[in-house]
């Protein structure tokens, strides 16, 4: 019955639908002035077009439900960026104003023990996570473990490894 009704869409209505189904047709028939309408796709400047039509920039993250894989992905960048920022900070400091390593070591171990353990957790967790997740990335680069269940399972393995590795390093 439904199929019959679909087939019974009148011919003029169908033609109207077809005539508005291409960018060029829309530009001519719909009263919309699209300067890109007649251009081949590869010659359209996507950034200019997105700005002109006030489109949101991709990736438009707010429309997606947060999944573990997404959190793991942004955490890879965050941990890499944070770890590198600390490394850069220390190395640039040494390049500009060389210090004695013993001074830093003595200063660190003059802190109360709970604070030292907390600092070890805060330092070790991002480094361990980024290292293990980096191996996951290198695995993906060989086109392995790319099915969605594999992506989740390797993600859980990395999280478990991060917990174990961080606990081991923090208690050294």
């Amino acid at each position: 019955m439904a199929a019959f009704r679909r087939a019974a869409v009148t011919a003029p209505a169908r033609m109207a639908r077809i005539s508005t189904s291409t960018p060029a047709a829309r530009a001519v028939g719909g009263g919309v002035t699209d300067p890109d309408a007649a251009k081949p796709t590869l010659e359209i400047d996507p950034f200019a077009k997105a700005a002109r039509l006030n489109r949101p920039m991709s990736p438009h993250l707010a429309i997606y439900k947060w999944e573990m894989t997404m959190i793991g992905s942004i955490m890879h960048r965050a941990t890499g960026g944070a770890g590198s920022a600390i490394f850069y900070g220390g190395a640039i400091w040494y390049a500009i104003a060389p210090f004695h390593s013993a001074t830093v070591v003595n200063l660190a171990h003059s802190l109360p023990v709970p604070m030292i353990i907390a600092a070890k957790v805060l330092l070790a967790a991002p480094i361990v996570y980024h290292s293990l997740n980096g191996i996951r990335h290198l695995t993906w680069d060989t086109a392995k473990a790319l099915k969605v269940p594999d992506v989740f399972n390797t993600g859980y393995v990395v999280l478990a490894g991060t917990a174990i590795g961080t606990a081991y390093l923090a208690l050294q």
Partner: peptide
């Protein structure tokens, strides 16, 4: 600077 600092 980081490369230089690491080497130093």
């Amino acid at each position: 600077l980081v490369l230089y600092g690491c080497y130093q």
